[in-house]
Design a protein around this nucleic acid. Structure first.
Lengths: 125, 125, 125, 125
DNA sequence: GTGGTCTAGACCACC
DNA sequence: GTGGTCTAGACCACA
């Protein structure tokens, strides 16, 4: 499972996104255990502290919880997951709309372009 | 023209966005001259170096050009403007689509949500 | 007797609190015998080592004593119990007063707030 | 300004408490700038990262904010400060009441003891 | 074994 | 100069 990190964003943020995607997409099933910090650190070729940092943030967001000495787990609270997903999406869309508006797009243009883009992406999904 | 800068993003990026928005929206007309670095610095209450950095970047993007001794101007090349705008939009959309996909959205959901969001934003535009 | 353990505090501390509360409230009568380590471990669903650690600590505090081959007992020394209780309370109050002072409370405010809080708690006791 | 750190609590938590007390007590005036991380690290004899960690947490709580490249400041929002103080106090009192109840105290005893303790503390304040 | 904390020292972006 | 990020490696409490 090779993952590339871009250098224009903190690694820990990229890790967060990675996990979040996993949870939102159901790839990481609710209630399941994550690999330990050290394990993940090796897997992704980063420092354990960096992994730790990412996971702590995800915990604060309520997407993970830690069971002392047993490891970290994906929250089993489906509502919580949905809520987090909703918040994320909301902010994303909000930013996006703001940006596209500032670039002079109107609603119709945007929707069209977006639809086209979406099909393009279907290939590499 | 009071502008607020958030402190969680480099100011020079916020300046860039400001200018870009001006050009894309037509507020800054093609071929028109920009205020000098020092003027802008005072106007926005930031360091001249910061303004400089933003303008240099915009020049590299082809949105501005410098005429020695005369000042900086908005490019008059409409195609260039459109191209820059297109690139920007393209990257934005690309990222956006990728993100929303990873959050489990499908095309229809996205378009609907987006349309609703768009009207919400019309108020504060 | 279902007990929930929060995972943000060592379990052994939670066990200690449990026993202490039992003794202070009289639920665990002085001189009575406690279940064995293994029994308690099963009852609470924790590791026997964890139970052991808690009980040893309570012994050091003088709240329990071990009679070889017979088991562990709640101390029958009423004065001892009172003393332990006093010490505990003392430290709690001490810390509490220090904290509230540092938050800018004065004596009257504190007493009032506390009294109100106390009644609120009466419900779930 | 010599400060001692006890070893039974993470240093970063002790730092947090320190700053919080400063803000709540008004010793750190709203809007004023804090020493830089490196500076504080030296002053308290800890690692800059540890200081950083504490300050980031306080930021998340809304008690501080950082101004890019200028430093960290105490929030000027009096309501925010009050709110934070209130939350803190509330949780403190809550825990305290719960504990004292489990030690078999009743309301009158508690208030009396507390009042006495309060005067004792007046000396070293 | 797990996660939690800490240090020392480094590099970066920004102003 | 500021804060932000990252690494390497250590020690601890807990189960």
């Amino acid at each position: 499972m090779p993952v590339e990190f871009t250098s224009d964003m903190p690694i820990y943020l990229q890790l967060i996104r990675l996990v979040r995607q996993g949870v939102a997409s159901g790839e990481l099933v609710p209630g399941s255990r994550l690999p330990g910090v050290r394990e993940m650190a090796i897997e992704y070729g980063v420092n354990p502290n960096t992994v730790q940092r990412a996971l702590v943030k995800l915990e604060r967001d309520g997407l993970l919880y830690t069971e002392r000495t047993a490891g970290r787990f994906v929250t089993a609270d489906a509502a919580r997951i949905a809520a987090v997903r909703g918040e994320l999406a909301d902010r994303q869309i909000d930013d996006f709309v703001r940006q596209m508006k500032s670039l002079g797009y109107n609603c119709r243009q945007l929707l069209e372009t977006l639809e086209k883009k979406w099909s393009d992406h279907n290939g590499d999904d």
